[in-house]
Design a protein around this nucleic acid. Structure first.
Lengths: 191, 191
DNA sequence: AGTCGTTTTTAACAAATGTGAAATAATAAT
DNA sequence: ATTATTATTTCACATTTGTTAAAAACGACT
């Protein structure tokens, strides 16, 4: 559980007593490769913090294709935020791409923690805002670059991820076909 | 000034006394067409709320091209959020595309308002989160669709904007060349 | 080692988008 | 009105990416 506490501590400090209490509201869960943390069409009543593993967030477009929105790995939160906030049905699927361990916060925990840990909401807001800004920036850069530039940028931003995710999912994230990605990879190795 | 107060009221109510005080911290500004609210490379120490007008947010990519991140119009906030939060130099330019009126909140106001209006920060957080989620969603959909689909979707989402912004900026937002957009528009009118 | 199932690569061709330059249309200025 | 300026469209051709299908490479399992 300490992974989450350490992470939170970067944004605002937690005293020992609060730390103690906090632990009662955290649950550790294991997920197998390919298992779902959340399926589109269901309600999203919990938030996960990735201790170990890689996840992909994807949705099904109008033609039935799985479109990868982004990948998340260690020390990041997984949640369909708009579904969680508005208590509407999730539009995103969240699937584990590896064996993984997550720390789970259900809605009850999320509502209770602020009663004894006043800074919680502020910290979460800050984290959320930063995460959204970062994702938006990354996503923005996928709109105005050609396929090669997008792949090269992904390599630079996530050097550790490329070997942990199937290329088909990566192609979908970059907005290109897997065959195109394959072609580009070949071109880059021997230009 | 009431535009902003009305808008805020949707998220959490303001009593008359607070409303009164709040007005002291708001400034109305006029901008000419093409004038900048914020230039990249400067500090961003204020937030604007659009009362009238359309703005584009854009940055300069490594090849020197102006890339439109998005358009904002009435009842939306303009700010380079990450530059504002972290007090770093702005990477985005915010330019008025029409004559416009904005309600300006400088950093001093933003810091003082929460002292007499406790809900302020929560309301702002909620608005920010929603805005970021919406923009991310829109931006996401620009990655995995072909040029025609992207333009059609833009028409559906922002029917009132198309006639207020130069097509070159729109093409940049969609991640295509202006000539391609022109070609697509022709195809759509007489398919 | 061998088989099955999945992922990744390859190839040939089709379709979409980019490029550069010029023509036209629309807007602003005089 | 006329000119100058800017925005938009058009065109011919180059390049990139998509499509379809098949082959090759990889991993899991006996």
């Amino acid at each position: 559980m300490n992974t989450l506490v350490e992470y939170i501590n970067q944004f605002g400090s937690i005293d020992n007593q609060t730390n103690e209490k906090l632990l009662n509201y955290l649950k550790l869960e294991q997920l197998q490769k390919d298992e779902y943390f959340l399926e589109a069409g269901r309600y999203c009543n919990r938030i996960g913090f990735i201790k170990k593993g890689v996840f992909r967030i994807f949705f099904i477009d109008k033609d039935g294709n799985e479109i990868t929105r982004y990948f998340l790995s260690e020390k990041q939160f997984i949640v369909d935020l708009s579904a969680y906030n508005n208590k509407t049905l999730a539009s995103d699927n969240i699937q584990s791409l590896t064996e993984s361990e997550i720390i789970v916060l259900d809605r009850m925990s999320m509502d209770t923690i602020p009663t004894f840990f006043k800074e919680w909401n502020n910290i979460l807001h800050k984290i959320t805002e930063n995460a959204l800004l970062e994702k938006m920036h990354h996503r923005s850069n996928l709109v105005n670059q050609d396929a090669t530039a997008k792949y090269v940028e992904f390599l630079k931003l996530h050097p550790n991820l490329v070997n942990r995710i199937p290329l088909g999912y990566l192609a979908s994230y970059l907005g290109i076909k897997q065959q195109s990605l394959s072609r580009i990879r070949k071109k880059i190795i021997r230009p």
